[in-house]
Design a protein around this nucleic acid. Structure first.
Lengths: 353, 353
DNA sequence: TTGTAGGCGTTATCAG
DNA sequence: CTGATAACGCCTACAA
């Protein structure tokens, strides 16, 4: 059986193809009764518009580009993050009859801007989703904006100008984690920072400082080490911290990979977790529950964030097609992360002070 | 500047659009000199054919579907596997000017067959790539075959009929791992099996048995436990094994997640790895290097496998378009995995016998 | 509220 | 070997 076309539907419904088109695209000016007629025909023929024909004739491609930093460039499990984002994005795309084009790229690539512009123009993307650390790349954002393509930003460090974004409560939740550690009696709480290009991580650092302040603890620079998000850097920072004369009794790393590095070093040095050292991370990667001891961390609803991002993007596309009216002011949705208390944190030894 | 079309190229080259089309599609019957002319014009105009127009006019969609079991349905890091497959697939797609449609699905879904058939017909996929455990789903494969869409199978358990596939040396390499453990002096080597729907895992089990035989060890049913690939099942199996009166001195799990579970249980029971127990896995997930002690395991070049799979698929598409000649007999490419010896395995204690 | 004509950029057909 | 011309399925304008 041949695939039904708009003509078949029109014939069956006894209307013109334009009317069918109107119904399909939810354009106004269709009598309700005829709309019903058309919908019935559509269903009966199991009709679905041909995307190629649509994008050829119309302005839209029904293609959304999902840009992310290529996880396979590193030896780390951020793959998990990406897959969740993909999942969320796909769900919305499917329900809205769009396709998703995944595009891993190297955020350090010098030609990134032109690479992406060429992608957008050749693939005729209707819209673009940016994930960290791409979402913090001002120049890339500007380049994309110039093409007129709607963009939604996931978890940028700062509200990016008039660009809609999904933001998080990174700062607040990190303050909370720090306060939690303080409440366990820890006085020397160390922090491991992350990739400087990922601005949202700075918010975590600020949150750590807030937490100290709120708990009446003083900020000690020697307890802050700079990592780069990798497991290895977590190990290195942990060694530096734990070799100090009066080492920290708790270490809060701004992602789970580095926290894992801390745990590993503690194992090697024969330091017991959580009796002698508490460790906390951020992300709640699967590993967090598999490692021993399981890792206290912070979970972000990544999938939901992606869904919201695509929701906003779809809105933009709609308002854009309806009328070239100014974009509905940069929306911004704040997503809330939560603490996951597990085995790697516990009371500070009273004599450790 | 407007995007160049085939007309622009034709005009610049001073030929008809059909000739340009011939060059683009590498059809025969074009004089070499005119071909050069056309290519020059193409380059000068930075011309790229419009995919929508192509798929509308032609038979092809330039879309490849990548089907996989939705990793986000579970709490496990198989995301890593998927991302690597995606990466490999994307690379080939880009170089061949195809697009990749990722399609996570639940392999247990009762309507999977019709879901996929509808996907293929509506998205007009040119070809499909199947990953485990989908690659072992005979009925799904039959359903797809019926649509006439070329399929390439990644890591099926058995050579699937006349269907091209990328296979692995799972059996051989697992025999090797077992022999390695035996060479360390282990007499009681346990094995944890995996998801029954993933047939390639059976090959691992057979390899284990081969390895025992080759090492002159006798197969003991009580040392084999059935897991389901999950971390949790690894823990459960480990407990059963380690509570036996004469427990194994080595445990070989057929994936890393379960091996991780074993390590965790050993930690909890105060069993030292590798002094009192050796543990080995399969996959070499990132976690394998982050856990303490780091995990001895087996690494498969997943990305390469995906690349090869797409290579075969592209060949199929080409031969299909050239001439509806019978598919070039089911190709089968065997990929070789390798042992990664790390800290979790060591000599058996001599008194443990 | 509905319908008609024309074109989007390619490929396929069939002459030259 | 090369080139007109008709599809492909839909959307945008413009009529009715």
């Amino acid at each position: 059986m041949r695939k039904a076309t708009i003509d078949d539907v029109a014939a069956l419904a006894g209307v013109s193809i334009k009317t069918v088109s109107r119904v399909i695209n939810k354009e106004p000016n269709v009598r309700e009764s005829t709309e019903k007629l058309v919908r019935k025909a559509v269903k009966k023929l199991n009709y679905r518009p041909n995307p190629s024909a649509r994008s050829l004739a119309g302005k839209r491609s029904f293609l959304i580009g999902l840009l992310y930093d290529d996880p396979s460039l590193y030896e780390n499990p951020s793959a998990n993050y990406i897959v969740n984002v993909q999942q969320g994005a796909l769900r919305v795309c499917q329900s809205e009859n769009h396709d998703l084009l995944i595009y891993p790229c190297n955020y350090k690539n010098r030609n990134l801007n032109s690479e992406i512009r060429s992608l957008i123009s050749h693939s005729r993307l209707d819209g673009v989703i940016l994930t960290p650390p791409l979402s913090d790349n001002k120049s890339l954002i500007a380049a994309i904006k110039k093409t007129g393509t709607p963009v939604v930003n996931i978890a940028p460090g700062e509200t990016t100008d008039p660009l809609p974004a999904i933001t998080t409560n990174d700062r607040e939740i990190c303050a909370k984690m720090t306060e939690y550690l303080a409440s366990l009696g820890h006085k020397r709480i160390a922090f491991i920072t992350g990739n400087r290009d990922h601005k949202a991580l700075e918010k975590r650092y600020l949150g750590y400082q807030d937490g100290l302040k709120n708990s009446g603890l003083k900020f000690m620079p020697r307890l802050v080490k700079e990592g780069d998000n990798s497991f290895g850097s977590g190990e290195a920072c942990a060694r530096e911290l734990l070799q100090q004369r009066t080492p920290p009794t708790a270490i809060f790393a701004c992602n789970d990979d580095m926290a894992t590095g801390v745990i590993r070093v503690a194992h090697q040095m024969g330091i017991h977790i959580p009796n002698e050292l508490s460790v906390a991370g951020f992300d709640d990667i699967p590993l967090a529950q598999q490692i021993y001891p399981s890792l206290t961390t912070i979970r972000q609803p990544v999938r939901t964030m992606a869904e919201k991002a695509l929701g906003i993007l779809m809105d933009q596309l709609r308002s854009k097609s309806v009328k070239d009216k100014p974009q509905t002011s940069a929306e911004e949705l704040k997503i809330v992360a939560e603490l996951k208390i597990r085995e790697s944190t516990g009371p500070a030894k009273s004599n450790a002070q």
